[in-house]
């Protein structure tokens, strides 16, 4: 029932957004699309209402970041209580998320001993990414992960952690030696080490691009379907709106899936960098 209401509300919001598109779409299609996806310092609470400029020079994506953090902190601090034997409501939901991260991401990759140390970090990462991605699906808001700077910052953090944890666990010499293949001449060995580090860098870039592209493309796809109504024919709405709703539903799945993929890959990369060769 709740899901049905949400879908109906979304359809309503999508339809109510049509006049705004109509005003601009005929002139500049790509400009209209990007205006609704890219970062800005204005928020439109209702499609026909005038845009409100955010205070302190804040951008929409920064607002989404802060809102996500506040939401997560509020959820956790108000619902979780120490020594609760019979959890109910929100605590059960939060516990199930942490258990999912623990049993399906951290423990299978890192093992129990190391996993316990990293569980807080990866749980926070998964929840942070999920909430930001899901908040971005609410029509008034924007997806902060659809901004290359935000997703790159997250990936850069993982990239730095790969180095820090690797050097801390293996030592500076062994961390570099780990990439050096045995039984090869020094020039080839050094070349392989270089390739390995380029690989590490590439992995992080890919991590960032995957998250950014998925979140950005999803929003763009929804808006593209709707803009087609004005570009082709108003009657095209009968096809475009169901497609947009379908894509939107798919976006919910993608939002959670990308959070999962990002967390899982971060976990694997950090684990790989801090494990000696052959283990």
């Amino acid at each position: 029932m709740k899901r049905l209401c949400t879908t109906i509300l979304n359809i309503f919001l999508l339809f109510s957004a049509l006049p705004v598109f109509a005003a601009n779409a005929e002139d500049d299609v790509s400009g209209t699309l990007f205006h609704h996806v890219l970062n800005g310092n204005e928020i439109t609470f209702f499609p026909t209402a005038p845009a409100v400029t955010l205070p302190f020079g804040m951008s929409m994506h920064l607002l989404m970041l802060l809102l996500s953090v506040a939401l997560i902190i509020g959820l956790f601090l108000f619902s979780v209580k120490k020594g609760e034997r019979k959890p109910k409501g929100m605590v059960v939901f939060l516990e199930s998320i942490v258990l999912f991260v623990r049993d399906d991401i951290v423990y299978p990759v890192m093992g129990k001993k190391r996993g316990e140390v990293w569980l807080t970090f990866f749980s926070t990462q998964f929840i942070f990414l999920s909430v930001i991605n899901l908040l971005g699906l609410i029509p008034v808001f924007k997806s902060a992960m659809g901004n290359i700077n935000v997703s790159s910052a997250m990936a850069l953090m993982v990239f730095l952690l790969i180095f820090i944890v690797g050097i801390k666990n293996l030592g500076l010499f062994n961390f570099f030696k780990n990439s050096y293949p045995e039984g090869v001449s020094p020039p080839i060995g050094i070349f392989v080490v270089l390739l390995e580090f380029i690989g590490l860098f590439t992995k992080s870039i890919v991590l960032s691009l995957r998250l950014f592209a998925n979140m950005f493309a999803g929003h763009l796809a929804i808006l593209s379907f709707l803009v087609l109504i004005f570009v082709i024919n108003p009657f095209f709405g009968f096809i475009a709106v169901p497609f947009a709703v379908f894509t939107y539903t798919l976006e919910v799945l993608v939002a959670l899936l990308q959070a999962f993929v990002f967390t899982l890959l971060s976990c694997i990369f950090i684990m790989m960098s801090s494990t000696p060769e052959g283990e």
Binding site: I72, K82, G83, R85, V91, E95, V98, F121, F128
Partner: peptide
Amino acid sequence: ILFFILWKFAFPALIGNI
């Protein structure tokens, strides 16, 4: 900030309960 607050206040209780 999120990691620090969850690590300091929320996760010990949550993981402890689990």
